[in-house]
């Protein structure tokens, strides 16, 4: 069999399980990313505008997450938490690890984006009588989120790749399933080529869609010097 035929053989034999594995990868990625936004946005707000103890606490959390590998965090949640009575299945542990990890990074991206909103916008908002909170929700977040889109796109693609750490706790996602198929058929390079193409294609599609989104929500004049 030639390389192409082997690929066809793998797809026709293991197509369904590969497809399911890829769906699982996309699921882990999107849930993890969403968790990251839902936690990251409030974390960044607390870190910038909150009271001092909260600021310090959130800064410590961000440093802790960014200073350790994601796989250590996953093993903590999956293997060490049962010690204090928190038992999670592998899938749940994975999305929580990825979500908590992403929250720290996204909080930093949001923080930088909010910092990139000119100080004069604050003054203008306060001068018409808006409260601090109202200024944040009506002026800073709408501008900051647009500024953050490129960084958040990178984060999403990062998560797509690193959703594969779920492999280590035996979640049957793409890398796990292709490893099993590789071991079974000994067609390692062939099966990994298929999965690599999948990851790269999804990354390219995400990049392109994010560009489109960025253009669609872009506002004339709302540009930032130096991307974050």
């Amino acid at each position: 069999m030639g390389f192409a035929e082997e690929i066809v053989y793998l797809v026709s034999t293991y197509g369904v399980s590969l497809f399911n594995a890829m769906l699982l990868t996309l699921e882990i990625t999107s849930i993890g990313f969403t968790l990251g936004v839902l936690l990251g946005l409030p974390i960044s707000l607390g870190r910038v505008y909150g009271p001092l103890p909260l600021k310090a606490l959130l800064a410590a959390y961000i440093e802790l997450i960014r200073g350790t590998p994601m796989i250590v965090q996953l093993f903590f949640i999956y293997y060490a938490l049962p010690l204090v009575g928190i038992k999670l299945d592998a899938f749940t542990a994975s999305i929580i690890a990825i979500g908590l990890n992403s929250a720290a990074y996204q909080a930093e991206y949001f923080r930088m984006a909010f910092g990139a909103v000119p100080r004069e916008q604050w003054e203008a908002a306060l001068s018409i009588g808006l409260s601090k909170w109202s200024t944040i929700t009506n002026v800073i977040i709408p501008q900051g989120v647009r500024i953050a889109i490129p960084a958040l796109t990178n984060e999403l693609i990062y998560l797509l790749k690193y959703s594969s750490i779920a492999y280590f706790v035996t979640v049957p996602e793409t890398v796990y399933v292709s490893k099993v198929i590789g071991a079974k058929t000994l067609l390692h390079i062939q099966i990994y080529t298929i999965t690599a193409v999948f990851y790269i294609l999804v990354a390219v599609v995400l990049t392109k869609s994010a560009k489109k989104l960025e253009e669609r929500v872009s506002i004339p004049g709302l540009v930032v010097k130096g991307r974050i």
Partner: peptide
Amino acid sequence: VFQHFNLFLH
């Protein structure tokens, strides 16, 4: 009214 207008950019 500000020197640099300070309109909300978005």
